[in-house]
Computed example of a mutant assay.
Amino acid sequence: MHLTILANIPSPPQGVWLGHIRAYALCIVAGILVALWLTKRRYVARGGNPDTVWDAAIVIIPAGILGGRLYHVATDYDKYFCDTCNPVNALKITNGGLGIWGAVALGVLAIWVMFRLKKIPMAPFADAVAPGLILAQGIGRLGNWFNQELYGRETTVPWALDIYYRVDEAGKYAPISGRSTGEIIASVHPTFLYELVWNVAVCLFLIWAQRAWKLGHGRVFALYVACYTFGRFFVENMRADEATHVFGLRINVIVSVVLFSVAVVIFFRLRRGQETPAEVDPRYHAQTHGGPAGPGDNPVPASGRAPGSVA
């Protein structure tokens, strides 16, 4: 029994420093930076304009945060709009609470509008962003660890997560903003860690699959949605936090099933093969290579990768 306790994963003693610096927000920022770095490498390697990535970041970051918060508030409205609740808390994003479904949905819509205005194909960018996006989600899950939230049911497995009792300066219970007293409330399944590991695995799988299967035309993004929702279905069923239920099931379980089914259908219906560099961004290709852009310009070799391309 003593060895099991030693093997448990400890929660951080606090998730807020200096009264304002929140680990949750830092994890989100770190995830965004990593996603931008990886997306830029992948999109440029496929023939895209690097400036397009920065333009997309300006659009997708605020849209993603807004969409994520709207989804969370909509599906957990009882936490913000009840007789004893303060609706202003719905605006406090750093306290935790971003729904990935809403973030991706509004982010995709915003990017679709941007690419329509720029008259650039969106599918190559979506494929470039997919691995970085799910890697960012994994990094963001560390924020749940600092906040001691979204964990699973109690367990005795050696890798159980110890949830500490936290209090504020006045000695009142404050699970997110307080400091640990050292008292363990419960030992639970670290579902944040399960999803983090799954997300990293999916990121590596997407990079491999695009090369091995020569995926393009949005199929990498569809595969991302299918893989993420497949893993999320099992992790969601392990969680013990309060959640909105529909037909007796957690709403995120239902959303996972629906999105997985849709993503699989889309994956098999989308066009096979990869875009040539000229098809990724015709105008940029014409500027950098000279002459009119066409579907036959600089075709991707049999390896499925443009010359000098990286993952």
Rank of each mutant, 00 (worst) to 15 (best):
L117C: 13
L98F: 02
W112P: 00
L133W: 06
E149G: 13
P121T: 11
L117V: 14
L133F: 09
W145C: 00
W112K: 13
R141N: 10
N144W: 04
G138Y: 07
N95M: 14
P124F: 06
P124E: 01
P121G: 05
R116A: 13
A110W: 09
G97D: 11
L142G: 08
A130F: 08
G99P: 08
L106Y: 11
G132L: 06
A103T: 08
L117Q: 14
M122Y: 11
G140K: 05
G140I: 02
L106M: 02
L106Q: 00
G97Y: 02
G107R: 00
K119C: 03
G140D: 02
G140C: 06
Q137H: 15
G107N: 10
G99Q: 10
N95R: 15
M122N: 03
L135H: 02
G107Q: 03
Q137E: 13
R141W: 10
G102V: 00
V129C: 05
V129Y: 00
G99E: 08
L117K: 15
V104T: 07
E149R: 12
I134W: 10
L133S: 09
V108M: 14
L98V: 07
I120E: 03
M122P: 07
G140T: 07
G96Y: 00
N147A: 05
I134V: 15
L109A: 14
P121C: 05
I93W: 05
G138R: 00
V104Q: 11
F115Y: 06
F125K: 12
G99R: 02
G140V: 12
L142Y: 14
W145D: 05
A126E: 02
P124K: 05
W101A: 00
L135C: 13
G96P: 12
L133Q: 10
A103P: 07
A126G: 15
V104N: 08
L142C: 03
L133R: 02
R116C: 04
G132Q: 12
G102K: 10
E149N: 13
Q137Y: 08
A136E: 03
E149C: 12
K118G: 06
N144E: 12
G140R: 04
L98I: 07
L117Y: 14
N147K: 08
L133K: 00
L142E: 02
K118P: 09
Q148N: 12
A103E: 09
Q148F: 09
G102F: 01
F146Y: 13
L106R: 07
L109R: 10
V104K: 02
I139G: 02
E149Y: 05
N95G: 15
A110M: 05
R141S: 04
T94D: 15
N144G: 01
G132K: 05
T94H: 14
W112E: 10
I134F: 02
G132V: 03
F125T: 01
M114A: 09
A136I: 04
A136L: 10
G99L: 11
A130H: 06
I120K: 01
A126F: 11
A136C: 13
G132A: 07
G102P: 04
A130T: 03
A123S: 14
W145E: 06
G138H: 03
I111D: 03
R116G: 09
A105R: 10
R141K: 11
V108G: 05
Q148L: 04
V108I: 14
L135K: 06
W112S: 14
A103N: 06
L98H: 07
I93R: 11
I111A: 01
V108H: 00
L133A: 15
L98W: 00
L135R: 01
M114L: 15
L133P: 04
